[in-house]
Every structure is written in C-alpha cells, then in structure tokens.
Design a protein around this nucleic acid. Sequence first.
DNA 1: GAATAAAGTTTCGACACGATACGTTTCGTG
DNA 2: CACGAAACGTATCGTGTCGAAACTTTATTC
Lengths: 194, 194
Amino acid sequence: MKNQALILLDTVERLGNLLRVGLRQAGVAQGLQPIHLQALLYLNEANRYSNTPQALAEYLGLTKGTVSQSLLLLARRRLIARHADDKDGRVVRLTLTDKGKEVLKELGLTNAWRDALQSASPARLSSATKVLKEALATLQARNGYRSFGVCVTCRHNLHIGPRSYVCGLTKEKLSSREVSKICREHSPVEENAA
Amino acid sequence: MKNQALILLDTVERLGNLLRVGLRQAGVAQGLQPIHLQALLYLNEANRYSNTPQALAEYLGLTKGTVSQSLLLLARRRLIARHADDKDGRVVRLTLTDKGKEVLKELGLTNAWRDALQSASPARLSSATKVLKEALATLQARNGYRSFGVCVTCRHNLHIGPRSYVCGLTKEKLSSREVSKICREHSPVEENAA
DNA sequence: GAATAAAGTTTCGACACGATACGTTTCGTG
DNA sequence: CACGAAACGTATCGTGTCGAAACTTTATTC
C-alpha cells in the first residue's frame, strides 16, 4: 500500500499537468505558450515592487535570460509594455497593456476549475487549501524560493489605520488595493513558530 | 475577497509549478528534461495495456509526434527499450531498461514532498486528496481525457478470488502486482451516481 | 575613482511542441 | 479477397523554451 502523502503527490502532479495542458490549449488561439500566459497572469497580480523581469524569473523558477526571451515576444505582440524605472536605471517595469488584460479576460481560465469544485463544501476546500499551502511553504523555504504571497499575509505589512497600510520593509504607504497583490519580498507571518 | 475555490487553484498551480521546476532541476545531472522524467515515471507504472507511445501521449496530453521525439532521445540514452508487439504489428511496447530504473531510483523525487507533509495528519491528507481527486476526475471527464488510474479502482476489474483478478474489458487474468499499475483503459467506479 | 554587484539583453546549442505528411498494419465491408 | 478507412508510429519543419555564458549599463561600496 502506498503512503498517503505519495497519493496526494500523485494527484497534485496530475492536476498540475492537467492545468498546464489547459493553459497550452487556451493559448493556442493567440499563439501563446503556457509560460506566456503564466507571465501575463503574474504581471496582472504583481505589485509595484515585483513587476520586473527578475521578479518574474524568480516566480517562474527560470533564468533571467530565458524570461527575457519570452518577454520579448510578449512585447512584440503588444501584450505588455516596458518602462524604465525612474529611480534605478537598471530596472525595467513591466505592465500589461489593455490588449494584454483583454486576452486574460477572454481566456476565462478559471471557469472549468470552479465547476470542478462546486460540489465540494467550503470547509473541505479550506482544509485542503491549508494542507497544500503548508506543503508549498515548506518546499519553498527548503529550496530558498520566495513565497510570492500577497501583502495582507506578509509580516512586513503594517495596518496603520482604516484602509491604510505601510510596508515595513520599504516604509512606503500602500493602498488597500495594493495590499492584495503579489509581492516579491513577501515573507509569511509565522503562525506556529517551530 | 477571493473565492475559496480560486485560492485552492492558485495553490495547486503554484505547487505544480514548483514540482515541475524540481523535475527540471533533478534532470539536469542526467541531461534530461521534465518531460523525459515524466515519461520514465509513467512507464515505470504502466501496465501491459498502457506501455505504448500512444498511451503515453494521452497521459501527457501531447501529440504522438511530439512524444515520438522524446522517446527517440530516451532510447538513444538506453533508458527505455522498444519492442514490436507480438499480436499487433502497429504497436510498439516500451519498457524501462535497468539503467532507466536506476536513474529513477537515484533521483529520489519524492523525498522533499514527504518531508513537506510530515506534519500533516493522515486524516487531513486523505481529506485533501479526496477533494483534489474529485476535481481531477471532473476535469478529465469534461475534457474527454482518460483517468489513467490503477486497476484496483477500475470498474472493469473483477476480483474473482484471493489474489486473482480479471479485466472485464480484455477478459485477461491480471496478477495482484499488475492490478496496482496504471491503465489507459481505466474507468473509475462511480461511487455516487449523479 | 576603481572594484564590485545587480538588472537586463544577447547569443548559442539542444530540445519541446504542434502540424503535416507519410508508411505500415489492422479492420471492416462488400 | 479487394478495397478503403482507421489506428499506430515515424519523420520533417518551423517556432519557441530553456540554461549557460558573455556582455552592457547602472548602482553601490570601499
């Protein structure tokens, strides 16, 4: 009999594969590869500290050279725009163009998934999520990967008033909209200190 | 606030990515791509109805032409062997060579995962597994994909005696070892008929 | 100001991937 | 049996991923 953890691994791997195949199929119409859609999805959620080629490379687990190629293609298709940073001349800011946002909207990537889970109770969903998030955090920590969570769950985030936030790392004010975006510097609050 | 199902989707996607990056990294030493390792893993678990290029292509969600290329590389490296089928001259049987099995063993792909889940209780694990398996089955059914489960969970499998099984589809006897392998013709038993 | 580091780009070679065309074998129907 | 359709597999081509390494530009550090 197989270990319970390994069965879960099998299932997650199989689901990951399926989602990837779905991404590939979804991108066919636009002539986009899975990695392109992942990049667009990331940039759509990345906050102002995290919308750079380097951050994207870390998020995807690829080298910056590889990512640079994919970004070239996305820029050629006018799905993203590149701007030089005001302060630091080395960094490039990446933003979705209207066309890029449009593409994401039209894909409707989450519909099938939502349907597939509609019969599961919220309690079971959140329980499953908790297990997987723990696994994810552990794997990321072990490999020295960043967690790329949203500011709301970050220990640097300070809630200084109603709808008023400050990032303890950069000392900058963040809007309530911004704190629900993905950050490269995210560090999860430790719920249960080991 | 985000839908609970979408949070789970995010987590699964992120985990899938991480596992894929892990596969890539694991294969570097052998000069193998993620898809190569996935192929080896599949062939290591495939039963005698399912060890063909076509079945592998369906499993991976790729075209047969693409898979043919990857198999060419694996055969060149002596990780798999190809044999013509006795009965049907069109089909090719794929088996791992000793070297191929060796490679899989040395990789130790599951260790990190096992560690990452060691703190989770078996009950939580099996609950999470159940949710994800349902989602997986739904997504596969909706897209017309095969489930690629093991015979034990297949409605064609008949338990005719102690350690004695017959596949209702092929009418062939299956060993107790074989019924825990992956089958292309797998069709899950319907626990809750809709 | 020189050394060093960091962000990005470019180039190269190997390979994935789909599409298409092709060859072989099997099956079905008259 | 002959013929065509279908299934399995291979080969080829074009586009693009991917890592490695060299390189440019801008910041930082001493």
